[in-house]
Simulated assay, not measured.
Amino acid sequence: MVVGGLAGLLVLLLVAAIGMFFWIDSRLAGIDGVLDDYEGRPGDTPGTNWLLVGSDSRKGLSAAQRKKLATGRAAGQRTDSMMLLHIPEGSDKPTLVSLPRDSAVTIPGRGRDKLNSAYALGGPKLLVRTVETVTGVHVDNYMEIGFAGFVDIVDAVGGVEINVRAAVNDPKAGLKLKKGPQVLTGSQALGYVRTRKGGALPDFERTKRQRQFLGAVVKKAASPGVLLNPFTAIPLAMSATDAVEVDSGTGAFNMLSLGLAMGDSPVTTVVPFGGNETVAGGGAAVKWDRTKALALFNALKEDKPVPKDILDAG
């Protein structure tokens, strides 16, 4: 009797899980044409490569919310953060690489400019093509999230614990934090990854905070206390599917793979850079260290661990 009851419960849980999987898949918003082929596109390579983008879209935010979150009223839409995640085929850990938004790159058909200008000029499709062109890495999946979705996801999991390395006071980002471990709300987390305060190289520190936060929020979202509790799992699923946009070929199974990779404590770094370059479209931009950057991206293309000296440089 007990065995039969347990078997019945397991069947119900399995059916519920399958139902939830297809429900999530049906809610994902796909963007057509993001990963279309073009002449000279880098070929597919072992492993899976994701381009993860945080945009500064204010879509879904009221005037009061924009004021509370200190997002400003900028028109249009730009990329606030960009990361390239490589998930290897073998047992090596995934690699998460920050691509500084102010990187000096050649945008196809547009010339030299900052990397985030590619999105402003041609949306996700031109951004993907630019990243593939300058890195030589074939992008398999694309995911984007705006300000409003960012806040909703963090609040849906009950906040995220972050070890703040130095006290932060940045009115422009609506942020004031003490040093040390603490649980950040959605609005605090948004300010934390956006602030340019702290460190000798503010943008470098900013990319480190973004990678730190992304790992923390995925770890929290994947924890049993969240996933096995319907009062948190369902709001999280609704917030996540409302918040993100993906390429039209990305579904729930791909998102599960992404979550598992991020929960596997990926190796994190930033593209090695040194010095500045003046670009016609936006003044001073960050110049990559060409030799080290090529070594980094070649390792990803060959599905090999990134050399330690390259990681140390980032």
Results as ranks from 00 to 15, higher is better:
residue 115 L to D: 13
residue 113 D to I: 00
residue 155 D to M: 02
residue 138 H to Q: 07
residue 119 Y to E: 01
residue 109 G to M: 01
residue 139 V to N: 07
residue 144 E to V: 02
residue 122 G to D: 01
residue 152 D to N: 12
residue 114 K to L: 07
residue 105 V to M: 07
residue 140 D to C: 11
residue 129 R to V: 01
residue 110 R to V: 00
residue 140 D to N: 15
residue 141 N to M: 06
residue 138 H to K: 15
residue 105 V to P: 07
residue 159 G to K: 04
residue 138 H to N: 12
residue 118 A to N: 09
residue 120 A to E: 08
residue 117 S to L: 07
residue 141 N to H: 15
residue 112 R to V: 00
residue 139 V to I: 15
residue 119 Y to P: 00
residue 154 V to E: 03
residue 126 L to T: 04
residue 112 R to D: 08
residue 144 E to G: 05
residue 139 V to C: 08
residue 143 M to Q: 12
residue 142 Y to E: 10
residue 113 D to M: 02
residue 146 G to K: 13
residue 124 P to L: 06
residue 149 G to F: 11
residue 110 R to N: 00
residue 108 P to Q: 04
residue 135 T to I: 04
residue 130 T to S: 14
residue 158 G to W: 14
residue 157 V to H: 06
residue 144 E to S: 13
residue 154 V to C: 02
residue 111 G to R: 03
residue 130 T to V: 09
residue 112 R to E: 10
residue 157 V to Y: 06
residue 118 A to T: 07
residue 104 A to S: 13
residue 158 G to M: 13
residue 126 L to K: 06
residue 129 R to L: 08
residue 142 Y to R: 12
residue 131 V to M: 12
residue 105 V to L: 07
residue 144 E to C: 04
residue 159 G to S: 06
residue 116 N to D: 05
residue 117 S to R: 08
residue 141 N to V: 00
residue 120 A to W: 08
residue 160 V to K: 04
residue 150 F to L: 07
residue 125 K to I: 05
residue 147 F to Q: 06
residue 114 K to E: 04
residue 122 G to Q: 04
residue 118 A to Y: 13
residue 118 A to W: 13
residue 146 G to D: 15
residue 123 G to H: 11
residue 147 F to E: 03
residue 144 E to F: 10
residue 154 V to L: 05
residue 108 P to C: 03
residue 134 V to D: 10
residue 110 R to C: 00
residue 135 T to A: 02
residue 139 V to S: 05
residue 147 F to S: 03
residue 115 L to G: 14
residue 151 V to C: 03
residue 118 A to C: 09
residue 151 V to D: 01
residue 122 G to A: 01
residue 127 L to K: 12
residue 132 E to R: 13
residue 124 P to A: 14
residue 126 L to M: 07
residue 112 R to W: 05
residue 141 N to L: 07
residue 146 G to N: 15
residue 118 A to I: 08
residue 120 A to Y: 09
residue 116 N to P: 05
residue 143 M to G: 09
residue 115 L to V: 10
residue 136 G to F: 12
residue 154 V to F: 06
residue 134 V to K: 14
residue 106 T to H: 07
residue 139 V to K: 10
residue 128 V to D: 13
residue 145 I to S: 09
residue 108 P to L: 04
residue 123 G to T: 04
residue 158 G to D: 13
residue 130 T to A: 13
residue 156 A to C: 03
residue 154 V to G: 03
residue 130 T to L: 14
residue 155 D to A: 01
